[in-house]
Amino acid sequence: MKVIFLKDVKGMGKKGEIKNVADGYANNFLFKQGLAIEATPANLKALE
């Protein structure tokens, strides 16, 4: 799943980066902790 990092995550990515991560990792950790959001077309447009 493609995500946009909202904060730096050690060993994974930096704020503003777009990366592919495992679905479970994104849903169970990154999204719940507020560290990333899904890289949807609307979210990608908002990032620009």
Rank of each mutant, 00 (worst) to 15 (best):
residue 4 I to G: 00
residue 29 F to R: 05
residue 24 G to F: 14
residue 13 G to P: 00
residue 4 I to N: 00
residue 22 A to W: 09
residue 33 Q to R: 12
residue 42 A to Y: 05
residue 16 G to N: 13
residue 32 K to D: 11
residue 26 A to Q: 06
residue 28 N to Y: 09
residue 40 T to D: 05
residue 42 A to V: 09
residue 46 A to G: 11
residue 30 L to C: 02
residue 33 Q to E: 12
residue 22 A to L: 13
residue 34 G to I: 03
residue 36 A to C: 05
residue 30 L to I: 03
residue 2 K to W: 07
residue 19 K to L: 09
residue 36 A to W: 02
residue 8 D to V: 02
residue 40 T to Y: 04
residue 1 M to Y: 07
residue 18 I to L: 07
residue 8 D to F: 05
residue 40 T to L: 05
residue 46 A to N: 10
residue 30 L to R: 00
residue 2 K to M: 13
residue 33 Q to G: 08
residue 20 N to M: 15
residue 9 V to G: 00
residue 40 T to N: 09
residue 44 L to H: 05
residue 26 A to E: 09
residue 41 P to V: 11
residue 11 G to N: 10
residue 1 M to G: 03
residue 39 A to S: 04
residue 21 V to C: 11
residue 14 K to E: 08
residue 1 M to E: 02
residue 21 V to F: 07
residue 11 G to F: 07
residue 3 V to G: 00
residue 46 A to D: 11
residue 41 P to Q: 11
residue 22 A to M: 12
residue 15 K to Q: 09
residue 34 G to H: 10
residue 1 M to R: 10
residue 7 K to N: 08
residue 3 V to K: 00
residue 28 N to P: 02
residue 11 G to D: 09
residue 27 N to G: 09
residue 17 E to F: 03
residue 15 K to G: 03
residue 1 M to P: 06
residue 12 M to T: 07
residue 19 K to F: 07
residue 39 A to T: 02
residue 35 L to R: 02
residue 41 P to I: 11
residue 48 E to A: 13
residue 47 L to S: 07
residue 8 D to A: 05
residue 31 F to T: 06
residue 23 D to M: 14
residue 33 Q to I: 08
residue 31 F to M: 08
residue 19 K to P: 00
residue 1 M to C: 12
residue 48 E to D: 13
residue 42 A to S: 10
residue 24 G to H: 15
residue 42 A to I: 11
residue 45 K to W: 04
residue 38 E to H: 07
residue 5 F to H: 00
residue 48 E to Y: 08
residue 28 N to G: 13
residue 3 V to A: 01
residue 31 F to I: 14
residue 41 P to A: 12
residue 46 A to R: 14
residue 13 G to R: 00
residue 31 F to V: 10
residue 25 Y to Q: 07
residue 29 F to N: 09
residue 3 V to M: 02
residue 39 A to I: 03
residue 8 D to W: 05
residue 13 G to W: 10
residue 23 D to V: 15
residue 30 L to Y: 02
residue 19 K to H: 09
residue 18 I to V: 14
residue 1 M to N: 04
residue 27 N to E: 15
residue 30 L to T: 01
residue 22 A to D: 15
residue 25 Y to E: 09
residue 45 K to C: 14
residue 35 L to Q: 04
residue 37 I to S: 03
residue 34 G to E: 08
residue 36 A to M: 03
residue 16 G to R: 03
residue 7 K to V: 11
residue 7 K to W: 08
residue 3 V to R: 00
residue 25 Y to K: 06
residue 28 N to C: 14
residue 25 Y to W: 11
residue 47 L to Y: 14
residue 2 K to L: 15
residue 47 L to K: 06
residue 41 P to L: 12
residue 24 G to Q: 13
residue 7 K to L: 08
residue 3 V to T: 01
residue 38 E to K: 07
residue 31 F to Y: 06
residue 43 N to K: 04
residue 45 K to N: 10
residue 42 A to W: 01
residue 9 V to W: 05
residue 8 D to I: 02
residue 14 K to T: 09
residue 23 D to S: 15
residue 37 I to R: 05
residue 34 G to C: 12
residue 27 N to T: 12
residue 43 N to Y: 05
residue 9 V to C: 05
residue 16 G to M: 05
residue 48 E to G: 11
residue 28 N to H: 12
residue 20 N to F: 14
residue 15 K to M: 10
residue 47 L to P: 04
residue 37 I to G: 01
residue 44 L to C: 11
residue 11 G to S: 04
residue 41 P to D: 13
residue 5 F to R: 00
residue 15 K to W: 06
residue 36 A to F: 01
residue 48 E to L: 12
residue 7 K to H: 12
residue 40 T to W: 03
residue 10 K to S: 12
residue 30 L to V: 01
residue 17 E to P: 00
residue 6 L to D: 03
residue 48 E to M: 12
residue 26 A to F: 12
residue 19 K to S: 08
residue 35 L to K: 03
residue 5 F to L: 08
residue 42 A to K: 09
residue 8 D to G: 04
residue 15 K to F: 09
residue 10 K to N: 10
residue 39 A to E: 02
residue 47 L to C: 10
residue 34 G to D: 04
residue 38 E to M: 07
residue 44 L to T: 08
residue 3 V to D: 01
residue 40 T to Q: 03
residue 21 V to T: 02
residue 12 M to Y: 11
residue 20 N to W: 15
residue 5 F to E: 00
residue 9 V to P: 00
residue 13 G to E: 01
residue 29 F to W: 13
residue 43 N to T: 06
residue 8 D to M: 02
residue 5 F to Y: 06
residue 4 I to F: 03
residue 38 E to Y: 03
residue 19 K to G: 07
residue 9 V to M: 05
residue 34 G to F: 07
residue 17 E to R: 01
residue 25 Y to T: 13
residue 9 V to N: 00
residue 20 N to D: 13
residue 29 F to I: 14
residue 3 V to C: 02
residue 21 V to N: 00
residue 46 A to V: 11
residue 32 K to L: 14
residue 45 K to G: 09
residue 17 E to I: 03
residue 17 E to H: 05
residue 34 G to Y: 10
residue 20 N to P: 05
residue 9 V to L: 06
residue 3 V to I: 10
residue 43 N to A: 11
residue 21 V to Q: 01
residue 4 I to E: 01
residue 4 I to V: 11
residue 22 A to T: 14
residue 33 Q to F: 15
residue 27 N to Q: 15
residue 14 K to W: 07
residue 2 K to T: 09
residue 24 G to D: 15
residue 27 N to H: 12
residue 44 L to R: 06
residue 3 V to Y: 00
residue 19 K to T: 08
residue 24 G to W: 13
residue 26 A to D: 07
residue 43 N to R: 06
residue 46 A to M: 15
residue 46 A to L: 12
residue 17 E to C: 07
residue 41 P to H: 09
residue 2 K to N: 14
residue 12 M to Q: 13
residue 4 I to K: 04
residue 30 L to G: 00
residue 39 A to P: 02
residue 30 L to H: 01
residue 40 T to V: 04
residue 37 I to V: 13
residue 15 K to D: 01
residue 19 K to Y: 07
residue 2 K to E: 09
residue 2 K to S: 10
residue 18 I to R: 02
residue 3 V to F: 00
residue 26 A to V: 07
residue 17 E to G: 03
residue 4 I to L: 10
residue 33 Q to C: 15
residue 1 M to V: 13
residue 29 F to T: 08
residue 42 A to C: 10
residue 35 L to S: 04
residue 13 G to L: 01
residue 44 L to A: 03
residue 31 F to E: 06
residue 45 K to E: 13
residue 22 A to E: 15
residue 13 G to A: 14
residue 25 Y to H: 07
residue 39 A to K: 01
residue 6 L to Y: 01
residue 31 F to L: 14
residue 47 L to A: 10
residue 17 E to Q: 10
residue 34 G to L: 08
residue 31 F to Q: 04
residue 17 E to T: 07
residue 20 N to R: 13
residue 17 E to D: 11
residue 9 V to F: 03
residue 16 G to I: 00
residue 46 A to I: 14
residue 6 L to H: 01
